[in-house]
Design a protein around this nucleic acid. Structure first.
Lengths: 340, 340
DNA sequence: AAATTATACGTAAGCGGTTACGCAAAATAG
DNA sequence: CTATTTTGCGTAACCGCTTACGTATAATTT
């Protein structure tokens, strides 16, 4: 029998239960009494202890935002996920939830049962960000009983709440842009074939090419970094020196391609057009500024967070996939061909 | 009387208190009994509920990492703090703590008492990141009773735990580098004079210049973004067209300066040398790659986190300032003058 | 006016652990 | 061998809030 609630209760000569009800405006307390309770709580500057409430209701008011560790770039530094996180946080800050972050290391991913956030029931739900999370791990998390949402990822043959960008659409638009500029010999730099988003983007590229009866030369990078883009570019050009335009699966690889092209003495966009995907912050700062497909990352973050909230309040809702629209932003890394 | 602990207690015919003691290896339980308890806990795959433990010990096992909102860039997307955060998270993941993030909006900063993370006792300690946090707010947080640590910021006349980069040292080194290359007419682009780190860096620049008997032309940008750097550069050059080298308070402004210089037809580093500060990810990717002062951001994150842990275990430790060393990394934005 | 239902509130048992205190048995001291 | 300390364990209160259930009173129905 303690806590501020009970103090108020004693002061007003009522029971703690009544105070609790009044404070959570639940029925079962008279209007005037309720008002007096609220007033007193106000005076005392009362704020419930989340810990106590959480223990009683077995909720933590905590949601996890977990990013898969990537070799090279620390997870948090990936500007793509940083922006998504920002969207998530904006929504969370309007609710009673707080968001805790963690990076999914190899150690964690390979031993899902040890993951402390679920073992110790530290979170009410989790958002898993990034395409390179083993589906075994995702499945294991789903088993744990707490809601799992995906962002920038999806699962095949398993319904799950997820939000993604419209990859095919964006890729299609990017390729159409290249075609409209007069390019016909186009190459694509893809990421690992296991990444769903990479495959979908390649699909979009292909679709546009097939429509006009051309074929796309695609090369799969082993990863999605700048250096990976450089390597992909050089090997792609070795086999297909006739290419006049390159579309890359993401901006990092596009930037890598441009760097490699410059090194080989090619001018972008004069000799070669390059288009990226994602519109990460530096895309606009690159030399030349990168034509790319803009993904509304912050909105994606908001969407998952929003979805998460409704999942939390409507537990037996069926999962749904939501995809957000993208748009091509034309900058200076693409130009008409032939150059006149 | 419930919870897994009591289940184990009942199974083994002992009291919950004993089980709790055994599990936290506290004295007061026989060796063989302790072993049996541990064994059974192991079998049951027991993990304590943080909520319950937290309520009992009034701890949350949660630390906040809070970044000040900046106009323009969403806080989380600032690669500088993202890397610090990563360092923090690495340490936290080795302990029992989890880190929750939030951005310090204007609304929050102007009404510290409303800040839900402290009102609702959601965290055991907080790390405040960034130089632009009003000291009123910091003070208010310190009043709240929970430990407050600063990173990339300090307080004047008030002892507080904080970790910073060695700004003066780095700036000094950068300027020496310019001097060694033969430059004598050097300008500096500073940030708002209210930012401690900006002032300290300018101090470092000045120090090196004074030593050799030259004077530094410094211009204060109104902010620290790329565009702010562009503007600062143009006005600086208007008044001092004779400058052959620029040192900027941070990489963003340095990159801005380079962009502006290019637009004005100046070649970097041929006509103008530029050096930055921070070594953000894109510094190396810039055209030309930026000579800059590398700050070990991840280590700074680790340092605060480590300090936080010791503060938590040694509550009445006196605050201390820790500063991490920096180093100049020479890339291609600086060159000898006169160019031969 | 009696029967039924709704409302206001109290009681007490949780939620899942921790810990101050007490007491008997074992270990150590003198 | 007694006196004292240490060790091993149980009892029960507590952390601060929620909620199922019970009861008396008020409101509604018939």
């Amino acid at each position: 029998m303690s806590g501020i609630i009970n103090q108020i209760a004693k002061e007003l000569g009522v029971s703690g239960a009544t105070v609790s009800r009044a404070l959570n405006d639940r029925p079962g307390v008279g209007d005037d009494l309720r008002e007096r309770i609220l007033l007193r709580a106000q005076e005392l500057n009362y704020t419930p202890s989340l810990l106590a409430r959480g223990l009683a209701k077995s909720q933590t008011y905590n949601v996890g935002f977990f990013i898969r560790e990537k070799p090279g770039i620390p997870a948090q530094s990936d500007p793509f996920y940083a922006e998504i996180l920002h969207g998530v946080e904006q929504i969370a800050s309007r609710t009673n939830y707080q968001v805790t972050i963690a990076t999914l290391t190899d150690a964690i991913v390979s031993k899902p049962s040890e993951f402390r956030f679920v073992r110790e029931k530290r979170i009410d739900a989790m958002i898993l960000a990034g395409p390179d999370i083993p589906s075994d791990f995702i499945m294991a998390m789903m088993q744990s009983g707490i809601p799992v949402l995906l962002v920038d990822n999806r699962l095949s043959f398993t319904p799950i709440n997820c939000v993604n960008s419209d990859d095919e659409d964006g890729a299609y638009a990017a390729l159409r842009h290249l075609l409209a500029l007069g390019h016909t010999r186009i190459g694509a730099i893809a990421g690992p074939a296991t990444w769903a988003s990479s495959r979908r983007r390649v699909n979009g590229y292909n679709l546009a090419m097939i429509e006009v009866g051309h074929t796309l030369y695609v090369h799969h990078g082993d990863y999605t970094t700048i250096t990976s883009g450089e390597q992909a570019f050089t090997t792609l050009m070795k086999h297909h020196p006739e290419l006049t335009a390159i579309c890359a699966i993401n901006d990092s690889m596009a930037i890598g391609a441009i760097r490699a092209a410059k090194r080989e003495g090619k001018r972008v966009p004069d000799d070669l057009s390059v288009v990226g995907f994602d519109d990460i912050p530096w895309a606009a700062l690159n030399d030349p500024p990168l034509t790319t497909v803009h993904i509304p990352k912050q909105q994606m973050g908001k969407e998952v967070a929003l979805r998460l909230m409704t999942v939390l309040s409507e537990p037996d809702l069926l999962p749904s996939e939501i995809t957000v629209p993208v748009r091509l932003v034309e900058r200076a890394s693409t130009a008409a061909y032939p150059r006149r």
